[in-house]
């Protein structure tokens, strides 16, 4: 069953078409990866789907409902959330508090109850605390629970960001380069974790540069170049697609040109 459907999505920044007419769909339990060279518009696409940017054209459907131009917090209430390429952690809060904030929708009550610390708020926050600890244990961050998040290593923060998103029990999860900057062991861990999440029925949308990881875990791959979708399909189909190969590696001609240029430069240096 299709959970997330993106149709003809596009946005321009000052006349420049950053993303143009991109469409694809994702089902529950499926891992859909968006790949493409730097600047292809992957993060921009993510930002439109998650409501951070307002698209100029196209539609985003979540579970059959049109959610185009919905604000991120409304999308969160409908079960869609995301992580960020450049970490967005609440640095001054503890690791545990970061995850507890992820439970905001489950925990929030009336403002007056919060101000007066009424018994109901205490019960709820104790429940949430326990669930948050369980999530932290899953990514081996339970020992760091009381530390200020800003003190954690990069790899740990990446994991923290994912479990914070999980706290709201999303149906659709957008992961923007979850393994960027992580070493091989950490990448493998995150890799296994994502597969585990998909197995629980979460639809996952992934932007990732680590091609080995993408090829291994994706059910479906969408390839962007210069803001346009140039290919889509199963991992092995996509990896054989000549257009994809040329977008990634450049054509033989292009490489030859670059080589010539470098030779020229060396020559001028020698003369100088």
């Amino acid at each position: 069953m299709t959970l997330l459907q993106v149709e003809g999505l596009g946005i321009s920044f000052g006349g420049l078409r950053a993303v143009n007419d991109v469409g694809f769909s994702a089902s529950a339990g499926e891992i859909v990866s968006v790949i493409g060279p730097n600047g292809a518009g992957k993060t921009t696409l993510f930002n439109m789907i998650s409501g951070v940017y307002l698209p100029d054209r196209g539609r985003v459907m979540l579970d059959g409902q049109d959610v185009t131009r919905f604000e991120p917090h409304l999308l969160a209430r409908m079960g869609m959330t995301r992580t960020f390429q450049n970490l967005q952690i609440f640095q001054d809060m503890t690791v545990l508090e970061n995850v507890i904030v992820g439970f905001h929708l489950a925990e929030r009550g009336h403002l007056l109850a919060d101000l007066l610390a009424l018994p109901g708020t205490k019960r709820r926050s104790a429940e949430v605390r326990e669930k948050a600890m369980a999530l932290l244990t899953r990514v081996r961050l339970d020992k760091a629970a009381e530390q200020v998040a800003g003190n954690l290593s990069y790899g740990a923060l990446k994991r923290l960001e994912i479990v914070r998103a999980l706290a709201m029990s999303p149906r659709v999860l957008l992961l923007d380069e979850p393994a960027a900057g992580c070493n091989a062991v950490e990448t493998e861990e995150i890799d296994a974790f994502i597969a585990e999440l998909a197995a629980t029925g979460i639809g996952i949308l992934l932007v990732e540069h680590d091609m080995k990881m993408v090829m291994r875990i994706s059910n479906h791959i969408v390839v962007l170049d210069h803001g346009e979708k140039i290919a889509e399909g199963k991992p092995d189909e996509v990896s054989r697609n000549p257009e994809v190969i040329s977008a990634y590696l450049g054509t033989v001609d292009a490489e030859q040109d670059e080589q010539d240029e470098e030779d020229e430069k060396e020559a001028t240096h020698a003369v100088g």
């Binding site: 998650s50 409501g51 951070v52 604000e71 991120p72 917090h73 999308l75 969160a76 209430r77 959330t81 995301r82 960020f84 967005q88 952690i89 609440f90 904030v101 992820g102 905001h104 929708l105 914070r164 998103a165 706290a167 709201m168």
Partner: peptide
């Protein structure tokens, strides 16, 4: 932006 993605208005 992160606060919004976890549902905070």
């Amino acid at each position: 932006v992160a606060a919004r993605t976890v549902g905070i208005d």
